[in-house]
């Protein structure tokens, strides 16, 4: 049985990654789960300079999921290079850096600083719904998507994954635009914009009123979008959105995903990545699948 997958020349020991923003840089989770068992750690968004993020409340629970409006709080790329790369390199897992910015120049600054650093891939975050500039503002207009991907790709010395927003009418339009811009791979979905109101206080629960929804409740939407995107682009797709176990992961692979990422499930079960890897292996064993390519994209 072979769970290895290859994304743009980078070989992952298994197709299970972490979704950016749900796993920090792995430090907190390393106490509770073995990072060596994860195909790739996609770290929390890294900006050119430290970002403070949004005021709290940043978290609200909703039926079968949650809302967040963290706003990409992060200590900046210099801190990341000094502290988080050496930490993650202690483990046998791939390092994927999620890159965020308020402008094309800021994205380029981060990518330039990461040139020559010991990381495996970059993920361009043009889909965060919780910032006023950059983020989703770039990720919902196909013309802008192509432009920002093209500009950032010029500075990247590692494969560039582009993370797409589901908050669009036609996900295939932004997917194709990212591929035209030079994306080496696509990842989707980021969170869906959502809201919760505290009727007792007559006020929104989140400080910013609107946040990004994630968790098992969004899985059917994410799966549909991954399926549509896999049908219209040739680059590898990393599927995510509500994946909590091996069965969920197999669905995304059958829809065409090369790899998958675990997000909110990490908060509910800190060992969700390991459990998902085991679940995929159990499925392969049960149905006598020797390589994931046998089931990838089998849904017509």
């Amino acid at each position: 049985m072979d769970t290895k997958v290859n994304i743009c020349g980078v070989e992952l020991k298994n197709p299970v990654m972490t979704a950016s923003g749900t796993f920090g840089s792995g430090r907190e989770f390393s106490e509770l789960t073995d990072l060596n068992g994860i195909g790739g750690v996609v770290v929390k968004g890294v900006a050119a300079v430290p970002w403070k993020g949004n005021p709290a409340p940043r978290i609200a629970e909703v039926y079968g999921g949650m809302l967040n409006s963290v706003g990409l709080q992060n200590p900046g790329v210099d801190y990341f290079i000094e502290n988080d790369i050496p930490f993650l390199r202690q483990f046998d897992t791939k390092i994927v850096v999620n890159v965020c910015g308020h402008s094309i120049d800021q994205y380029k600054d981060v990518v330039r600083k990461l040139r020559g650093q010991d990381v495996d891939m970059l993920e361009l975050n043009i889909s965060c719904p919780n910032v006023d500039e950059g983020g989703m503002a770039f990720g919902t207009d196909p013309v802008m998507v192509e432009k920002v991907v093209y500009e950032v790709k010029k500075d990247a010395d590692k494969p560039l994954i582009v993370k797409l927003s589901p908050n669009v009418t036609d996900i295939t339009a932004t997917a194709k635009a990212a591929a035209r811009g030079g994306a080496d791979a696509l990842s989707l979905i980021n969170t869906l914009t959502g809201m919760k109101i505290d009727i007792h206080k007559r006020a929104p629960v989140l400080y910013r009123k609107i946040g990004g929804m994630s968790g098992p409740a969004v899985k059917p939407i994410a799966l549909r979008m991954v399926y549509e995107v896999c049908k219209c682009v040739d680059v590898p797709v990393i599927g995510m959105g509500g994946i909590s176990n091996g069965e969920d992961a197999v669905e995304f692979i059958m829809a065409g995903a090369t790899a998958v990422a675990i997000g909110t499930a990490n908060f509910i079960n800190p060992r969700a990545t390991a459990d998902t890897v085991r679940g995929i292996e159990e499925y392969m064993e049960k149905y006598n699948v020797s390589d994931l390519s046998e089931i990838r994209g089998i849904i017509e």
Partner: peptide
Amino acid sequence: EERMACGIGACVGCVIP
């Protein structure tokens, strides 16, 4: 006190200034 998701410092949800 603040609303939390992960409880271990990874999600950066429960912040105070």
